[in-house]
Design a protein around this nucleic acid. Structure first.
Lengths: 292, 292
DNA sequence: AAAACATGATTCCCGAAAGGTATCACTCGA
DNA sequence: TCGAGTGATACCTTTCGGGAATCATGTTTT
């Protein structure tokens, strides 16, 4: 089999049609260049250059081989580049889990930054509730999740990506909508409150329960998705607590009210396996917005 | 820059996921193999294999690089093959000149054989009268011609490809058509004879003149192409001499008559430059039908 | 016609690089 | 704790590639 140096030698001679000049271009002297070309011809099994003491020209086989040689050398360049880019996380695949809520304000900008800064990274999106993301991460189906606590911090590492206040959402014609001031826990006494699944949306479930702990609302509905909650509110089935970014969902017929007291922060975490090695993941982690 | 040997080494290890077995497959021992892989990684600038004392596995960069490496090695194989095939004339381009007449019986079978036996040879066809072919051969525009004598045998080499009798073509209602016997030169006395251009179809011109030397026909029309001649005959403009294969042209309203006496042979020659080096040409020449 | 020149091939030498043997360092299972 | 298995390292030998000088041959110049 021939070597890449022999290919470069041949290409140089084929382009210069002169051994001396080709040798100069290759920063070597003419004799070893002649030998390399001879070796290449022996390896290929065909005469590639017709040469006498006066001129050098390509044979037909040489013409055909020159094309292939150029392609090969080009591929050599790009092969290394590709591997380096993958190594540095600038190319590859990121399987990203996200909750419907995280998509409202966080996912869009993140995807935009990714496609700008790492255009060769393919992002595969999986919409899942947080437990589903954790499951996916542990099974190796996901590289990164955007979800809510809690999660096992022995195996999973995480970082807060966004933090926003909790707010109340009430029907547009509801008495709470008319108060015009931040709502307290007591305001919810006797209200029909729509809350969250303790298993599939545990985080919002606990936030809701904690905020309303001192009042005595009636909690009947327990759903998983923020959007479902708001649609139920719009349908007059009760009131609910949602993250502030839900205002941007654009559901008609509901009013959003601030909550009084120390801000109940809703945190969104980026979550990944502590032992993950994916270069793309490492690279993306450096791009995540920092909150505290 | 890395070497092809290093690529092969990497591919072997990546496939075996075991240095020892990979080394065995490459007919070498494990230590130099380890070194080659290390060198490759340094050359590429990325870790390609994650290895400890217990297992070997591909990194993401290694996965990407493996694909490129395989493609590269495949190209190495095909590049050599291609050059060899071109060298042996099994691939490449043949610029083939031919006369309209040669197309009747010779060109078709030749092209069929070429596409069967040398499917990677592209044949570019140029229909030209013989002097045009000779010109093309000398200018380097053609590799091979199918034409008639004479031509300069110092520069051009040739071989007879087909030999066929001359015959007469007469209008279907002509008195000569009714004779029912081979025609002699004398039969043409007083006939209007259509002949050929002394420059552009010199061969047929001379054949006609020679055959009719002893009679006294009237020769007025002088054309280049056999088909034109026959169409003129069909139109009643006279009689003419054509090669026997012209019967297969399927022109209506004419009758073909054998000629008496020693067969006037019409020869078709393959013609090429004596100094031609094209491997395709050399290969095609070995495939040409042999006549004498 | 002879001499000078140009060009690729050949020869010989040296140093760099590759392969082999022996051994080390480390992990895992008995 | 020890032995088996695995990749890395050290050291030696061999091979291979590059450089200087020279050759062979054909072209140009004088």
């Amino acid at each position: 089999m021939f070597s890449l140096d022999q290919l470069s030698a041949f290409v140089a001679v084929a382009e210069e049609l002169h051994f001396g000049r080709a040798a100069e271009r290759l920063n070597m002297t003419q004799p070893p260049l002649s030998r390399q070309v001879q070796k290449l011809e022996r390896a290929v099994g065909a005469r590639l250059l017709e040469r006498d003491n006066r001129k050098v020209e390509l044979t037909e086989a040489g013409q055909a081989f020159l094309t292939e040689a150029r392609r090969l050398l080009a591929l050599v360049e790009t092969a290394g580049d590709l591997a380096r880019r993958v190594d540095q996380g600038a190319a590859g695949t990121l399987r990203l889990g996200f909750t419907a809520t995280s998509a409202i304000r966080t996912l869009g900008p993140l995807l935009r930054r990714l496609s700008e800064e790492l255009p060769d990274v393919d992002v595969i999106l999986h919409e899942r509730v947080t437990p589903g993301q954790i499951d996916g991460l542990l099974r190796g189906e996901l590289d990164l999740g955007l979800g809510r606590p809690p999660f096992d911090s022995d195996v999973l590492d995480s970082r807060i990506v966004s933090r926003e206040p909790l707010c109340a959402v009430v029907p547009g014609n509801h008495r709470l909508a008319a108060l015009g001031r931040p709502l307290t826990s007591a305001d919810f006494s006797g209200e029909q409150v729509i809350s969250y699944s303790p298993t599939q949306a545990r985080y919002f479930h606990e936030l809701t329960v904690r905020f309303l702990a001192e009042s005595h609302p009636r909690i009947e509905q327990r759903v998983q998705q923020i959007l479902t909650v708001i649609l139920l509110v719009a349908a007059g089935r009760g009131v609910a607590l949602v993250p502030a970014s839900a205002r941007h969902l654009g559901v008609e017929g509901v009013t959003y009210c601030d909550l009084a007291g120390p801000g109940q922060a809703v945190e969104l975490h980026a979550i990944w396996r502590r032992d993950a090695t994916s270069p793309v993941l490492q690279r993306v982690l450096t791009m995540l917005p920092e909150h505290h």
